[in-house]
Each structure stands twice: as C-alpha cells, then as structure tokens.
Design a protein around this nucleic acid. Structure first.
Lengths: 109, 109
DNA sequence: CCATTGATTCAATAATTGATGTATTATTGA
DNA sequence: TCAATAATACATCAATTATTGAATCAATGG
C-alpha cells in the first residue's frame, strides 16, 4: 500500500452510499453480493450503484466475479487490511498510544 | 462512530497532503507538532496547511492545544481507532477473513 | 431468433472541493 | 502601545466529483 493507493481507497470510502455498499459487502463476507441484491438492500438506483461499485473496484477495495449473467462483488480484505496498516504504521514513535478502548488497531505500538 | 462521522473522517484523509499531515502527526505521537514544523517538514504553504488542519480537526481526527503563541496539533487516536473499528465491525458474518498477512485489523473475525 | 432481465456506459447538469492571494486576529517582547 | 511573528479566515477561480435519465451491451430461456 502506497500513498496513492491509500488516497484512492479513502476517497472511494468517503461517500455515504459507497461506504454503505462497502460495509454491506464486508458483512456479506466471502459469499459476496450481486448488484441487484445490493440495490434492493440499500435502496439505490442501479445505475448509481454501478457507478459506485466501479469506484470501489477502481480503488481495489472490491473484486468482481462473473457468474452467468450475474456479477458477484466481494470486499477485498487484503486491500482493506493494507489500508488499515498504512494508516497506523510507525505510530507514536514507539511509545504507547493513548487509546481508551481495547481495540488492537494500533498494532505497531 | 456513526456513518456521518466516518464519511467525514475518510473524506478528510482522502487527500495526499492531508494524509501526509495526519501520518506525520501519528508518527509524532502524544507530543504533537506545530503548524510551523509541519509546514517545514512537508513543504506546504502555511495557509494551505492551516486549511487542511482545519479539515482534519473538523473531522475530529486531530486535536488542537494552544501553548503561548504556538498551536500544538495531535492525532486523535481514539477517533482513529473508532474509524478503524467502524470499517471492520461485523465483517465476514463470523467466518474467517481471507487475509494473507498477520495484520490484526479485522478484529471481529 | 426474440423477449426479458441484469448490468453498465454515456452525456449533461449540478454541486462540491482545492489552490491561491490578501486581509485579519492574537500573542510576545520591547 | 507598537512592531514582529504565528496562525487563521475569507474570497475567488479552477478543477474535480456526483446525479440523473436514456441508451447500450450481455446472458438466459422459450
């Protein structure tokens, strides 16, 4: 994960509808979802959804697989983890983070 | 962390200069940095930097403390961890994630 | 082959965001 | 109070991004 990839991924997620789409795909897990299901689930117009899915795919956050006449979209967890790692690496100069909860997100501390 | 906060935070980070600023603050840790130091370090015009810091502050990603005539900016790690948690919660419907590395970002799997 | 359904692409408009220069506020020290 | 410095606020123009509707492409089944 480099800076350009991170900016691209963050930009793709910095939109309410796309964030909902992505989170739906994250929740769906390895099974993935089709655009039809997503459109029904999130109440988004299909062409708008198509546009947003393309944005997410372009940022590398989702993968596409064709099955017959349906497409299966899946969240790309390795890319996601790369992004999370990019955001937190080298943090706090080796000292402990001031985190209040038990989240392990700040792994390099 | 709700959706609006997440979108705001992601939008704030989805910009190369702001991402650099934020990562510098993350690396600086609890000590924080002043706008002057950041401007020198990143070679950004001071008024542009001020604008970007305001964006980050508005998204809740950085905190501001005044010390005499200087301001100290710090990354807000609790907000950051909230964002990371928001992105990954409920993922994969309880099944294991398809992560290739040893990152622990996907904590709810 | 043709009708139907799933999905995408295109083009025009509307809206948001970014960069830049200037002006303003606030603090320090004499 | 005055000068100098740190930092922000504002206004403007340029550029990017989002939305919408219509048209197009592709696959399935009769």
């Amino acid at each position: 994960m480099n800076e350009a990839q991170a900016v691209s991924a963050l930009g793709a997620l910095a939109h309410a509808q796309r964030l909902r789409v992505f989170r739906s795909l994250v929740v769906a897990g390895p099974e993935g979802l089709t655009p039809s299901v997503l459109a029904d689930q999130l109440d988004v117009a299909r062409n708008a959804l198509s546009f947003h899915l393309k944005e997410l795919a372009h940022a590398g956050l989702v993968t596409i697989e064709q099955q017959g006449r349906n497409l299966i979209y899946r969240a790309d967890f390795s890319q996601m983890n790369g992004l999370l790692g990019y955001l937190t690496e080298h943090c706090c100069q080796g000292s402990t983070c001031e985190v209040s909860d038990s989240s392990s997100a700040c792994t390099s501390c």
